[in-house]
Amino acid sequence: MTAGIPEFIPADVRARLRDLRLLARRPSGSPGFGGHPSRSRGAGLEFAQYRAYQQGDDPRQVDWKLHARSDRYYVREAERDSPLEVWLLIDATASMAQGDAARPGWSRLDAARGIAACVIELALRQGDRFGVVTIGGEGVAMVPAASGPRQRNRCLLHLHRLQAAGAWPAAAGLRAVGERIRPGALVLVLGDCFDEACVALAEQLSAARREVLTAQILTAEERDFPFRGGYRFTDPESGEEVLSDGASAREGFLERFAAARHALAARLAGQGIRHFEYFLDQPLDAPLRRLFGRASVDAGPERS
């Protein structure tokens, strides 16, 4: 790991990253050479199609054996392996600063950073291109997609400087996001998905042929609601306050919250978005393992 940048990934998680592999469901559309199947045709190992000879084709590409049989000129084309473009879209609004009382100093944003760092490591290992978009109170900040260790350092530095503050920006500020992320890219949205605009952005990207994955980062308190006694709950973004008794509010909250989570999962699944939940007390690689581990091989076309 590069010196000077704090370690986002614990050692045990880093060790477990070894057998993970980023995979896209759809063929990649990125130019260049990489390790992922792409829609581009060209030189490669995997046969794709025969095409009638056009003027300008390299004569070496003509399949002469086929010409001998059919007396026509065909050009043999193969699928070209392309690199994957991975975008990490991180919600950096104020609600991401929330953490658990049981583990102070470990907020949603810290977890998002950790997951993002894991993905960056994977992408770097595979030679894929990756970029980071953070959306917070200060607007949209971006590290344009590129590959290589220097790109990783750029991204990690950007993550390191990230602060959770403010609310989700207006839709006008988000247009750059859609413009920068090219079709076919893998977009991993890391956030609490409490903002309707955030979910809408994910849907928009998915509808525009980006492969979107959403990771809803939730605290253990939101799952268990362990509050007892009088509490003044404050929404960090709107500043709203609710005075409530922990024990008596628990049941209603858990019920409503579970319903809301199910509704969100159903809605995103309907849009073809792979959605998963991550709780702050889980290990960092748990969501990645579910998405990219051996068990989820069927999620994308396997290439040997």
Binding site: G229, R232, D245
Partner: peptide, 23 residues
């Protein structure tokens, strides 16, 4: 001390909206 309200940051406030008076 009992009536004192402990502050807690809670982003999932909208699912807690139903006003439940402290007991």
């Amino acid at each position: 001390r009992r009536t004192e309200q402990q502050p807690a940051m809670f982003a999932a406030l909208r699912w807690l909206k139903v006003r439940q008076r402290p007991q």
